[in-house]
């Protein structure tokens, strides 16, 4: 009964939008969604999912639909993406996931903002120095897309914590800044059977790949060296490199969830912004010789 009334209410408050090519779409503005959410005491995400089931598009996602379709938007809104790290990569990843309409986001980080984060971390603003990164992430998501359900976990990734937090994720994003945690995350994603989107940066250079549980991954990229940091210790991290890599990571997440496009599986994309080149290296293990 309640569901029926919700459907009726969404229908009554939606508008018809005629596209240039003549097609007509039903759309619902955010203000109307919020009224329905309050009146029916249902989360905004449920209102949006019900609308999409009726082929009515929440207006905020209108510019997504031409590429991913209503079905793709439903998949995004029904998914849970875990972002491990809320620093440079994590900040941009969270921003773009919330705008794209990923319905549930879990953010894990045990750091506080420092002044040297201000050059590249979207969530690092002057008044946030000393504040928990995950708290800022949660607040930022709420200001972008209040339909998104956020779990903010303050603390660093461990095998034990990861098993608990990441097991229900649709996709995991590697937004870490050290190799030992990345090795833990690689093992966890494999054991839990959850695809992992890896990204890392140093100076002008960035890399991205998608690792499915059955694929070779982190261990191929980082080899066997007992070292925890890379070239970034010397060259730092430039803001645009961070934003570029995070953008590619989010595009991978969208492709995995919606089934559109071709994820960068078994391929490491290397973005060299200094020379303006992209290179792809096959992540395929060769024979010993």
């Amino acid at each position: 009964m309640k569901k029926n009334s919700l459907v009726d209410e969404i229908k009554a408050r939606s508008l018809s939008l005629k596209l240039p090519q003549g097609e007509e779409w039903g759309v619902i503005p955010l203000s109307e969604e919020k009224k329905i959410s309050t009146a029916f005491s249902v989360p905004l995400r449920e209102v949006e999912l019900t609308a999409l089931e009726m082929n009515i598009i929440p207006k905020r996602y209108l510019r997504n639909i031409g590429t991913i379709g209503i079905d793709g938007q439903k998949k995004l809104l029904s998914s849970l993406v875990a972002v491990v790290g809320a620093g440079g990569l994590g900040g941009f990843i969270i921003e773009l996931l919330a705008r794209a309409g990923v319905g549930r986001i879990t953010v894990i980080d045990g750091d506080l903002f420092e002044e040297n984060n201000l050059n590249r971390q979207l969530l690092a603003i002057e008044k946030n120095i000393g504040k928990e990164k995950v708290q800022s992430a949660k607040e930022r998501i709420a200001t972008i897309n209040s339909a998104v359900e956020v779990e903010a976990i303050f603390g660093f990734l461990t095998e034990e914590k990861g098993r608990e937090i990441l097991s229900s994720a649709t996709v995991i994003c590697d937004a870490l800044d050290n190799i030992s945690s990345r090795r833990i995350l690689g093992r966890l994603s494999r054991r839990l059977g959850v695809p992992l989107v890896h990204g890392a940066v140093a100076g002008f250079i960035g890399e991205v790949t998608t690792i499915f549980p059955e694929d070779p991954g982190i261990e191929l990229i980082y080899g066997e060296e007992d070292i925890d940091r890379g070239e970034e210790e010397l060259v730092g991290n430039l803001p645009a490199t961070v934003a570029a890599v995070a953008s590619f990571q989010v595009q991978e997440v969208i492709k995995i969830i919606t089934g559109r496009g071709k994820p960068l599986r078994k391929k490491l994309l290397i973005i060299d912004t200094e020379s303006g080149t992209f290179e792809t290296v096959d992540l395929v293990k060769g024979d010993r010789r």
Binding site: L89, G199, A200, I227, D228, E231, E232, I270, G286, D287
Partner: peptide, 25 residues
């Protein structure tokens, strides 16, 4: 085009690609 260990012995004409460690976030 195949990932190998550092003990791998290349042969005449091989193309070797060396990649630094990038781990920043």
């Amino acid at each position: 085009g195949r990932v190998v260990g550092k003990d791998y012995k290349p042969k005449e004409g091989d193309e070797v690609f060396l990649m630094n460690i990038f781990s920043g976030g």
